[in-house]
Every structure is written in structure tokens, then in C-alpha cells.
Design a protein around this nucleic acid. Structure first.
Lengths: 225, 225
DNA sequence: CCAATGCTTCGGCGATCCCCGAAGCATGCC
DNA sequence: GGCATGCTTCGGGGATCGCCGAAGCATTGG
């Protein structure tokens, strides 16, 4: 017992303000350099290095080197999920927020969670895809149906590429603002990318907000309906 | 930025091994005394007092005095939800666990989450209730239908008492093992209580496992189907 | 090649926090 | 009423950890 449970380890990692700031900055799924994260955290570069090493060691971050630059990102969407849970809990306890949380109507409406669409729009899309049998729910898992494959391909998704990638195609991501799942995984990410590419919505800089244009919102509401 | 975000505050509270042990011990929704929590945490009584004060101040725990005894419990089911998220994340990162986590097949199958049924059985029940129109899903909310009221009353649930209580009747609780919601709120709790009262299942001592007897499992599978 | 930049490592400092013994207050039981 | 028990508060000790300056290594661009 004296060694503490492993939730303490995760908690301690999140529990430092500088590290919390870094994690928050990475919530939109973008990768940032060590220097950028140092600025986000408001600490010196060498201090940031120490923090980043801990987050890497703890499995919360992943890193890729590009020349002298090291790009850090969240190690997976589950990290984003858990951080969203913590944000939700913190907002309920009157804690100060670094940024508008899911109480922000726009973030509740549509936001980026790691690399896929979350919020009301994300959950609504998920509901349409399951109701329309494009996705099949199993025990804790989700699979694309053959019927769904055709629809996704028609929408411009490279389904073969999704299937050959190493990450799961479909994954249920728990949505804290809606308390129901939205779609994550390769397909979830591809759908968001496609929606942005079509100009239906755009991502606001330095924010997780996904803002639909009026015509895009109409088109989206019909998608897979 | 130097003040850190509020997720850091929650993280720091969870990040101490003694406090993490206390929170874990309270996951089943039962209330424990300060002395019992001191034992769970493996620290002296006065140390435990300090920790409990912090958890109270942070809004993670609530307390009720009964004579010289102080009974602590989690401040709400959202705390349990978030702790489950942390447990899930910790288990994915190869961290040590104090107890079998949701990787335990029995816990995945059926377990107590705060005061209601979670796991495969909890999620399956939720699916039956929504598919059968006993519950209606709104934007982030769940409501009991009139149709559902009759069914719940027939099952032995005091619906009027639920409605007059101060807590929400229906609440979606995100299930980390199944990645879909199970039912929380007054109704969720009442259903678990009823199931146990009927002898369909029982709660294992000092554990969150809910174990169905064979006949109870059969009856449960037909409930609201 | 050299200077600038990005990043990591080392070492020391200081703040914080958890630990428990001791003491005190409240409650319950005989 | 006295004693035992539950719990909290106070104070001191020691461990931990985040901080940054300095130094070193790697990469990039002129």
C-alpha cells in the first residue's frame, strides 16, 4: 500500500501545473516542439525537458524527431479522453480553467478530440452511423459494415488505407459533454479531415473548436442520414 | 500559466499514493470512516486526517458525522467515472494496479460503479431500456418515458420516490470497460438494489464485483427485453 | 566552417509536502 | 464520572521535486 496505486502515478504526472499546461496544449491532437511546450508551460527549456521526459516515461506522450526538432503529441486518444474527464470534473468543482471548457457552447457543439470530431455534432454523427447500420456495435468494439464501407467510400474516404494502417479503424471515444460516444480511430479522424476539406467546417487556430459554416452544417446534418 | 490549470489540482490530489488508495477504496460507493481510510491508505490517523481534508476541500469527497464517527464517501458518481478513466489509462500503461482492474473478466462483466451497475451487464441493460423506449435520449440527457415508468414500477421500483429525490433520476455514466454508457442516477441505483434484493446477483465483499447467480443471469437477460 | 538554434543533462537551491509523535477535543460505554 | 476510542490539530523532520544557470551535443543555415 505504501507504494501507491498506479492512478497515483498518472495523477502525479497531471498534477504539476507545467505538465498540465503541456497536456492541455496537446489536446487538439497537434504535435508541438519541446520549445513550444516550454512556452506553453511557462518554464525554461531545460525544465521542460525534464517534464517531457517524465510524460514520455509515463506513456502519456509520444515523440518524433525531425532534425533538431522534437515533436511531442499525446500518446493516444485515450489520453485525450481521460484529460477531458479531468477537465469536466475540474469544471464542476469550481476550479479555474486554463481555457473555456466544455461549458463553452461552441466546444460543446463541435470540437476536436485528439484528431476526430467530438461534441454534439460528433455524437449525432455516431448515432446516425449506427442507426443506419454503417457501423456495428459489438462488446466494447465497433466495426464498419460492408454497407458502411460503400457509404464511406462514396463520401470520399480511402477505406483501404484505413484498413491497412496500424491504428484501429473504428474506436468508441467517450464524449464528456454529451455523455455518449463519438467515433474515434482512423475513420473518425478521416471523417473530420474530409469535413474540413469539403469546407463544411474549419478548425479555429489555437483552439479545439470546430466551426461549421451554415451550408456545411446543413450538409453535415444529412450525412449518412 | 505559472498557476497551473485546475486539472493539475485534481491530478495532484489523486497523485499521492495514500490519497489514491482512499479514493480507490471508496469506488464501490460505500462510505468509510476516517479510521478505516487510514488503514486503507496505510498511514497514521493524523496523516489520514490531513489527506481527507484536502480531498474534501478539493470536492472529491463528502462527509457525514455520526457521533464520533465521520463517514466519507465520493462526492458524486462523476468522481467514480473519472477515477475509472484513470484506472483504465493506468492499466494500459503497464502501471501496477492495487487491485484487478477492468481487465478482470468479472469486473468487466458486472461491477458496481458508485452505486449502480456497470460493465457488460450494465451496458446491455441500458441498451435494452433505450431500444425498448423505456428511456429517451436527449442532448446529453436521458429521461424515463411514461412507457418506461410502468415497466419500472412493475419491476418493483418506487418511481415516485425517485422523482421526488434531489438527485437526477436518470444519468448517463460512461463505462470504461465497454466504452458505452450505462445508467446511473437514482434509477440506476434503484435497479441495482432491486436486482440484489431479488437475489439475482450479489455484491462481493471488499470488491466492486457483482456476481450473478445462473438463474439470476437468465432473468436479468430478459429484463426489459 | 562557424554561428545560431534546439534540446538535453548536470548540479545546486529552495519550496513544498507527507510523515508521525504529542496533545487536545468530542463521543460513547461501563 | 472515568476511561477508551475516534478524530483533528500542531510542530518538527526529512524526502522529494520543480526551478534555473551553465555546459554540452546535435542540427541547420549562411
Amino acid at each position: 500500500m505504501k507504494h501507491g496505486p498506479s492512478i497515483a502515478r498518472i495523477g502525479a504526472l497531471v498534477g504539476d501545473p507545467a505538465r498540465a499546461n503541456m497536456l492541455t496544449a496537446l489536446m487538439s491532437g497537434q504535435a508541438l516542439t519541446a520549445g513550444e511546450l516550454a512556452i506553453e508551460a511557462g518554464v525554461a527549456a531545460n525544465t521542460a525537458s525534464g517534464h517531457l521526459a517524465q510524460l514520455l516515461d509515463g506513456g502519456l506522450l509520444a515523440v518524433e524527431k525531425q532534425g533538431r526538432h522534437r515533436y511531442f503529441r499525446l500518446a493516444g486518444p485515450d489520453i485525450a479522453e481521460t484529460l477531458e474527464a479531468l477537465m469536466d470534473l475540474a469544471s464542476r468543482n469550481g476550479g479555474r480553467r486554463t481555457r473555456p471548457g466544455p461549458k463553452d457552447p461552441e466546444l460543446r457543439r463541435a470540437r476536436v478530440c485528439y484528431d476526430h470530431l467530438a461534441g454534439e455534432q460528433g455524437v449525432a454523427l455516431m448515432a446516425r452511423m449506427t442507426a443506419g447500420k454503417l457501423l456495428a456495435l459489438g462488446d466494447g468494439s465497433i466495426e464498419m459494415t460492408a454497407h458502411g464501407e460503400r457509404h464511406f467510400a462514396a463520401f470520399g474516404i480511402d477505406v483501404a488505407a484505413l484498413k491497412s494502417a496500424s491504428r484501429p479503424v473504428c474506436r468508441s471515444c467517450l464524449d464528456w459533454s454529451m455523455r455518449r460516444p463519438h467515433l474515434a480511430g482512423g475513420l473518425g479522424a478521416a471523417l473530420l479531415t474530409r469535413i474540413v476539406h469539403l469546407g463544411w467546417a474549419r478548425r479555429l487556430p489555437a483552439s479545439r473548436i470546430v466551426r461549421f459554416v451554415p451550408s456545411g452544417e446543413k450538409a453535415f446534418a444529412k450525412l449518412f442520414a
